[in-house]
Design a binder for these strands. Sequence first.
DNA 1: CCTATTTGGAAACGATCATTTCCGAATAGG
DNA 2: CCTATTCGGAAATGATCGTTTCCAAATAGG
Lengths: 205, 205
Amino acid sequence: MNVDISLASGRTAGRPREFDIDEALDKAITVFSERGYHGTSIADLRDAMGLTAGSLYKAFKDKHAIFLASFDRYKQVRNMLLDEELAKAENGRDGVYRMLAFYAEGAHGDGGRRGCLAVGTAVELAIFDDEAARRVERSMDRFETTFEALIRRGQEDGSVNRSVEPNATARLLLSVVQGLRVLGKTSPNREQTFSVVDVAMTLLD
Amino acid sequence: MNVDISLASGRTAGRPREFDIDEALDKAITVFSERGYHGTSIADLRDAMGLTAGSLYKAFKDKHAIFLASFDRYKQVRNMLLDEELAKAENGRDGVYRMLAFYAEGAHGDGGRRGCLAVGTAVELAIFDDEAARRVERSMDRFETTFEALIRRGQEDGSVNRSVEPNATARLLLSVVQGLRVLGKTSPNREQTFSVVDVAMTLLD
DNA sequence: CCTATTTGGAAACGATCATTTCCGAATAGG
DNA sequence: CCTATTCGGAAATGATCGTTTCCAAATAGG
């Protein structure tokens, strides 16, 4: 029994995995977003990910672990895209708009119907699944903090009214964004979605 | 085979039902709100409703029918409570505030953790369940319309600024309310919830 | 009082669930 | 080249799912 942990080299002994974990998780994200955790069976995941159940259970401990890995992957990708978008912001107000528009873009059309994995997890799992709840909370906190920082930045660069209360307004914007995800499940109309963004922006005047 | 439909009298032949349907549905609403549709088993419903599976299937066609009946009951009760609250409104602006406060009250604390059945249904079932989706859409439309009517009324009685765009603002308020329900699953803090309401009200100035 | 009908309740149903087991194939290290 | 290890894949596992069946009990109408 050789308990030697192979450092440096990415590979250890044994037959190499024939699929890419992140690519597989991207498929899982779609399924979990559409059907939810309890609505998704291992057979659904197997089909969508193009794997056998056996391979799934060699890569992940159980269904719950697949879900958490999917959630983490989802957040990682979305946060990266958002950061890229925010890097383009000219000032605080523009940053708030870019952030609202980023989510509005995801909340309408087919993506809106598919839904947001974070919102789905909050609604379906937050009460009974502590690990899921912690992840959702961290995700929400991050958004709220980002909104608040952009508002403060805007107040310094003159693009946001000084009388705006940064924390409460950030939390309202967070609510709006989550709400758009809910509305996007049944009425994912593009211009209605963006009209909400426009009204929200008037809070910064 | 007597196909005589007993009119007038509420009762037909056979052993009478020993439980009240609405009381049973109120228990089912709690379970479905907490666990979602797919996360709720017939055994869960049987235990919560204090019935046997056999009795459930005599009162309802199947699990889906229990869910839809629960949803309808939920909306009926909530709408009644909201109407009572709105009847007290002194003017348009006050009506908007009462409506926002009504939902904020449900979105925090234990009720917030439990969740809103309409939001849960939108997120979990809207894509693949047409009957559920239709109900959610009707519910959302009703809220939006009510918000819009209150805004217009406020513009007539002078309590809401004329420059406010009624439809877009109503939709934003709807988004805020649904978003509060999502946030209430993980951070159901009372004052944070109501601070969002206060900020939203400034849109009417 | 008799018949038809519906309920309550327990037990049983097949289907599907998440998960494991088993075996041949493919790799790394010695 | 040999051994240990991991993978892919199919088949099997026990548990739980939603639903039905069956029988005694309780009502209405004739």
